[in-house]
């Protein structure tokens, strides 16, 4: 077991190394440099451009810059943002991360609270009106592009009805629209999954046996069905840990939330190498850990699965 974890972690390190190397190389392949953004419309001479380029070490070949980055990284230094003239990247991440995490946490909590019971109920009361309507809702929820519902909600609730603020962060009202958009998507995915998993469990022998033994339906459902049905659900949640970022890129853009997603896309646009690098690095760690934890939880819940 311990050996297994160590092996997986070592593999994870290799993955992290390769991913960051690839990102770094790609970013430097892109034409343009953050210096162009820094100087803006100032009346610059080539000397000034050269001075700035040199100051930030951009005159050296990219692999050399990567090694410098890697060295700093190992000492826990994420570097500085060029575009934000020297603000430590770690500080930028610390400012942006809570915003993204909160958005995800709230929407995920809402999604779980609604989708899992709904999914189980739909499976138990199969072919009922509830089953049909919730599954129609879920299918629709998957099909709606989240940036588009975001826009539509802004039109309806912020502009026409004026009940809610249209964007930005601050008060609790600011959370409602983006959380609703994120939750819609997650709810749809989770409800479908839960229903599918529950249906499968319901038809397994031990459930039939339990029912035959005369256990009450509710007991069966809670003690046997739900527990087993949650397995694939947890797996998906674990695997999707890293999707925290991608889910919010678009939503943060629509609602002007200063979170990680927007920071990421802005930094790519401005070729703010250090920031992109740091976000990708953290993301990869999340992916590796998410994968590992999921496998472990999986093994814990279902002893039939042995870890090779």
């Amino acid at each position: 077991m311990f050996q297994y974890i160590v092996r997986r972690l070592l593999q994870g390190l290799v993955v992290i190394f390769l991913v960051t190397l690839a990102t770094f190389g790609l970013m430097h392949l892109a034409p343009g440099s953050p210096v162009d953004i820094m100087i803006g419309e100032a009346e610059v001479s080539q000397e000034v451009i050269d001075a700035i380029t040199k100051k930030w070490g951009l005159d050296r070949p990219w692999y050399e810059q990567y090694l410098v980055w890697l060295g700093n990284m190992l000492r826990g230094d994420f570097g500085q943002s060029m575009v934000r003239t020297g603000v430590p990247v770690s500080q930028m991440l610390l400012e942006a991360a809570p915003v993204t995490l909160k958005l995800n946490l709230y929407s995920f909590a809402i999604a779980v609270l609604i989708a899992i019971p709904a999914g189980v109920l739909a499976a138990v009361r199969r072919y009922s009106l509830f089953d049909y309507s919730s599954m129609v809702g879920a299918t629709l929820g998957v099909a709606l592009p989240n940036f588009w519902i975001g826009l539509m909600l802004i039109i309806i609730f912020a502009q026409k009805l004026r009940w809610l603020p249209s964007g930005g962060s601050g008060s609790w009202q600011h959370y409602i629209l983006p959380v609703a958009v994120l939750a819609t998507e997650q709810m749809a995915v989770l409800a479908r999954l839960t229903r599918g998993a529950t249906v499968e469990v319901l038809h397994q022998d031990f459930v039939t046996t339990a029912r035959a033994k005369g256990l009450a339906d509710v007991t069966v459902i809670f003690r046997h069905v739900v527990r087993n049905a949650l397995l694939p659900v947890i797996t998906i949640i674990g695997y999707r840990l890293a999707f925290i970022l991608s889910g919010t890129i678009v939503v943060e853009t629509v609602f002007a939330w200063p979170g990680l997603g927007r920071l990421f896309i802005l930094s790519i646009d401005r070729l703010d190498y250090q920031v992109v690098q740091a976000i990708v690095f953290l993301l990869t760690i999340l992916v590796v850990i998410g994968n590992l934890l999921t496998d472990l939880v999986y093994a814990y819940i279902d002893p039939r699965i042995r870890i090779q």
Partner: peptide
Amino acid sequence: EAPTATILEKMRSGEMDASLFNWT
């Protein structure tokens, strides 16, 4: 379409044909 940094750099280096922006 390209990001601002790319446009500025490529226009400055002469690798881009044309662009559209406001400048004094």
